[in-house]
Design a protein around this nucleic acid. Structure first.
Lengths: 126, 126
DNA sequence: AACCGATACTCTCTTTTGGAAAGTAGGCAC
DNA sequence: GTGCCTACTTTCCAAAAGAGAGTATCGGTT
């Protein structure tokens, strides 16, 4: 009873599930915030990212960076010195993702007040 | 000890936290998928959305639609008939968000294989 | 030799979130 | 009455996230 219909901006049926999965991975708050921090500050260390992404826990930062590394968005450089020194930087793929999200950031900035007004309106109904 | 520095594509310090919050709301897998379904199919009923968004539970669909309604992305029309009939459609604001995300969908489609290859490569290391 | 500091994690515990499935409401055909 | 229809709502349980302390490493200090 599945609807095999066209979905998504391209209409290739079998690809949709995969695109959905990738979107699910990419449409993640922390991924987006880390991506943005790396776009903004360039190559950064773990502790710098922890500072740059407000509210992220070390655990989530580690996890997010691992996923992003696995997906090929960031490159991890370990300098074998004491104390340890690890740098993270965007790959070209990660950078291209950042550019794709650029319009979303701009949208968020542009419509911040509209959304706030909509929320206030909604909360004051009934 | 907070770093008040420039973040985001605009550099207005106080706005950043709000933009972050909005991004967190908007960069949500289910929100994105529902948004896409509404872009694709136009005004839809609850059950049609449940079918159009593969894998979503009723609970998450209800919750996501409520949030999107509160944020002003969707309009909810209740037809007071029996059995109940409720239609959801994108507001202009919701549509503009969909357009902002368009580049992300295109990115996902375009780089699907690159990401798959990166993952395979990562998983086969050490 | 014991201790400390620095850095990037890692582990444990508690809270929050998400999914599956059953329940609710209310008129209408039977 | 009983069952049916749709759009939720609730409940229970499992998975995920956050807080915060712990770990490994080595050189320098005491």
């Amino acid at each position: 009873m599945e609807n095999p219909a066209i979905t998504r901006y391209s209409n290739v049926p079998g690809v949709d599930a995969l695109v959905n999965e990738l979107i699910g991975r990419v449409a993640d708050k922390w991924t987006l915030l880390v991506l943005e921090a790396l776009e903004e500050h360039g190559e950064s260390r773990f502790s710098a990212l922890a500072r740059a992404v407000p509210g992220i826990s070390q655990k989530m930062l580690t996890q997010t960076l691992r996923q992003m590394e696995r997906d090929g968005f960031v490159h991890r450089t370990v300098h074998p010195v004491i104390p340890p020194h690890v740098d993270y930087r965007l790959t070209p793929l990660g950078h291209s993702l950042g550019e794709a999200f650029c319009s979303v950031w701009l949208w968020a900035e542009a419509h911040l007040e509209t959304v706030a007004a909509a929320r206030a309106d909604f909360d004051n109904r009934d």
